[in-house]
Design a protein around this nucleic acid. Structure first.
Lengths: 315, 315
DNA sequence: CGCGCCTATGTTAGCGCTTACATGTCATCG
DNA sequence: CGATGACATGTAAGCGCTAACATAGGCGCG
């Protein structure tokens, strides 16, 4: 019909006809059917994103960047929460593929072999985000969690706090947590110190868990002088627990976190932490996807966004 | 084809044929095309949800409930962030309608007339969530923000804290914030106290803003004895500011919040606040949508989930 | 033995678009 | 004045499914 031209290249239609068609569309309350368009054009205009948790506002910042980058190309985001499970991620990827998404964003670099196989077979652009790896499925934008954790742990050691403990999220299917721990251990080895199991705690990712973990850590190792936490939520919990137990921070125990969440700057003492450009990670991932879908060449398949240490009062 | 039967009612196909078909599907790596299915069946299996902010973990809890309720029926959620703008909500609703979503969830009860018109015309199930109103578009599950704020303000007054100030989020296109303020004012009037503009602050919804607002409020009205904040993030900021200024809580100033975010129980003193069943709101909304889509009658079109006051040390 | 009936399989049209090509109309120019 | 092209409009096929109906064998039954 002429109708589609009115909607897509209005200038190619005579003004009179255009007006007539537009009037009818308005009167009937026409809404283009993107499902039918998707079937015919083999372009759904949907981008799938797998994130660990819907309720994680840090990852939501990445998604905000993604959304912003995509919306300029008329693409819509579909979110799926994997609950930190690679198996669940596979289920989501399969669902996305069934919905014929035009591209996929994955959080982290740990995936099931089947996930990787499906993605490669599908041929759509894939961006992994939030960490680095030598062998991404397709494209990647992130930072080195190992290096960041190493820098922070070294900072604690150089400031004279030793022994340094570690409280981190469970590393199961979570490469960011895994690599942060690896960075912590690497820093210890680099300064010829032992990696002691008693100094390392694994816990869930919230304030209360951080508080409990710190209590347990101090009980096990009363000589601990600093704690590096793999997330600010944990660090804030640890900090509150220190306050309750009357430990001076950083006099008795220094505390460092990761992520620079808004509250990190507000707690007393303000939290020393690591900042990463979350919004930009999403933005860049979105830009790479748009480039690829538009047939433009992508300059760098692997983008290292880096990180920044934010030294405040707590360590 | 027999293929579709193998996928949908395998028992209606002879075992031998079934095996043969299944083998081919496996070998070719077949994935059903939900786009084509959507076109043919006029059921996309997608539910659209408009929320104000992706980065708000409170609303994410509602979405988690929604997702859980929907996934049992094989439905997928599409999220759109409106940034607290009814106009932006309209854009999102239009996009959802174009994608032929099977139902829509809206946060709050304020919408543009065009949004309401489009939704009514579309005929799909609509659930509004997070507040109450007499005249929902279709279905609704929420609680009375007015009543909750009234209860909390009355609690402050009865505890002998007066005058009571208010720090709230901007009420523009945000009926929850608007109604919380109304509840605050209603409680004042009920106890024959004046509603003073100098005691009321509008600010954005984060810790830092809460801190600034409290500072300003105390400057304007040094006699203020309590503050009711329309959100815990604001209350926590206010609390930190009090600590910095050396105000005893609740001795010099009592502080109350709204939402019971995780940190509310952890700050010192722990925050008195209001708790609402966020996950259940999402869950119920999802159940209502599933019922409607399955042709089952929905018992109650309006569900009041209620709220709960959590009295802690801060007020 | 032929009728109906059940189960297993095949057939058809069409969902609302896109893509590619076909046709119609008019002005321009040698 | 007919060929040429530029612009406006129309036509046809098909994307991968679903829904509804059609057909083909096998069985029991009067």
């Amino acid at each position: 019909m002429t109708v589609v031209r009115v909607l897509r290249d209005p200038h190619k239609v005579a003004a009179a006809t255009r007006e007539r068609v537009a009037a009818v569309l308005r009167d009937t309350g026409y809404t283009p059917d993107l499902v039918a368009r998707g079937l015919a054009s083999r372009r759904s205009g949907l981008i799938g994103a797998v994130i660990p948790l819907l309720t994680n506002s840090l990852i939501a910042e990445i998604m905000q960047g993604l959304t912003d980058a995509l919306s300029s190309s008329g693409l819509h985001l579909m979110l799926g929460a994997s609950g930190f499970s690679a198996a669940e991620e596979e289920v989501l990827v399969r669902a996305f593929l069934s919905r014929r998404v035009d591209a996929i964003y994955l959080t982290g670099v740990i995936h099931t072999p089947e996930t990787v196989r499906m993605l490669q077979r599908s041929g759509i652009p894939v961006v992994e985000g939030g960490n680095l790896t030598d062998a991404p499925i397709d494209m990647l934008v992130g930072y080195s969690n190992v290096a960041a954790a190493r820098v922070m742990t070294r900072h604690l050691l150089r400031s004279g706090y030793a022994p340094v403990g570690y409280i981190g999220a469970h590393p199961q299917d979570n490469d960011r947590a895994r690599d942060r721990r690896r960075g912590y251990e690497a820093a210890l080895r680099a300064s010829r110190r032992p990696v002691e199991a008693a100094l390392c705690m694994e816990t869930s990712l919230d304030i209360e868990a951080g508080a409990r973990a710190l209590g347990e850590l101090v009980r096990r190792r009363p000589d601990v002088r600093a704690v590096f936490c793999s997330a600010d939520a944990i660090a804030v919990g640890a900090l509150y627990e220190c306050q309750r137990q009357g430990f001076a921070i950083p006099g008795r125990i220094a505390i460092a976190g990761f992520d620079d969440i808004p509250i990190a700057a507000q707690v007393v003492p303000a939290l020393t932490t690591l900042r990463v450009p979350r919004y930009d990670i999403g933005r860049q991932a979105g830009a790479m996807i748009c480039d690829r879908l538009a047939g433009r060449p992508v300059r760098r398949r692997i983008v290292d966004t880096g990180f920044e240490m934010v030294a405040r009062a707590s360590a």
